[in-house]
Design a binder for these strands. Structure first.
Lengths: 145, 145
DNA sequence: CTATTGTCTTGAATGACTCAAGACACTAGA
DNA sequence: TCTAGTGTCTTGAGTCATTCAAGACAATAG
């Protein structure tokens, strides 16, 4: 039993960031929510702790947390940016075309960039982002065509 | 030597779409522009033919052309939607983190979905979209860090 | 040629996100 | 502990790609 906020504070300090309730709340929210919440969802959860948290602050905090590598930001075509706690396991995403749900897919190849692009050597590739598109188990049966 | 507009008209008819100058202009524009133009760029080129083409019409046309498979729409994180003539060769994209330039990368694996996701069988995967991120030859030398 | 239906234009709206300015809070140093 | 200094938060307005809505217009079938 340990205080998640205290833990968040420690991680912020480790990253050489100022420790504020808003940052602790956002970081804790992302870790406790799990999945791939968007900024609004993160804000909602964080507000339960802080009592109030502006959307602007949510975006600010999400950005700095992403910059220092505590949070990973994923932008799926046609959706808002989504956030998840960075666990430093290279993984990709499956996105359901129907409900928009996102789930993690372990990278079976290894570290980034896990794929090799057929490009001239003058191109420097540092990441291969793979998004699998399809139908999730809930939507697949309902899909016609 | 053949009229590109007549060719466009034929392809529209083939797709069972009404043939309008706007549609011919947009389809021709995409094919002649090459690369990965956004809606505004497509509109600009198409206007040279039609004299006038509303942005709304551009979006409408791009959508229907995408739906019938004459055009492929690619949405890269942090950029507007981009369009290209569908050539039915499964390929992916390289995106330069610095200048935003997009270039095609042939898929070395084969037909979609070219990768297999480590997912339960109940998930139906029909596409694996790969985006390679890095620095293009023009930006790589200037990059510090 | 005309009716019907789909498409285009115009103008307003949406939604995610960002900018800006002032109020406020965190950290370091006295 | 107090205070200066700077970074962060709040509020409110702004941006930008894209979409909605309504009426004018054009393409196709008969």
């Amino acid at each position: 039993m340990y205080d998640p906020m205290a833990r968040a504070a420690a991680r912020l300090r480790e990253a050489e960031l100022r420790v504020t309730v808003q940052r602790m709340a956002v970081l804790t929210a992302i870790e406790e929510l799990g999945g791939h919440p968007d900024a609004e969802a993160v804000r909602g959860r964080a507000q339960e702790v802080t009592g109030g948290l502006s959307l602007q602050a949510t975006y600010n905090v999400l950005r700095v947390l992403t910059e220092v590598g505590l949070v990973r930001c994923t932008q799926i075509t046609g959706q808002q940016a989504r956030y998840e706690a960075e666990r430093h396991n290279n993984h990709h995403h499956f996105v359901c075309r129907f409900c928009g749900d996102i789930i993690d897919v372990d990278c079976v190849i290894g570290e980034a960039p896990c794929l090799v692009a057929d490009l001239p050597e003058s191109y420097r590739v540092d990441e291969a982002a793979v998004t699998f598109w399809g139908a999730c188990p809930r939507c697949a049966p309902a899909e016609h065509g």
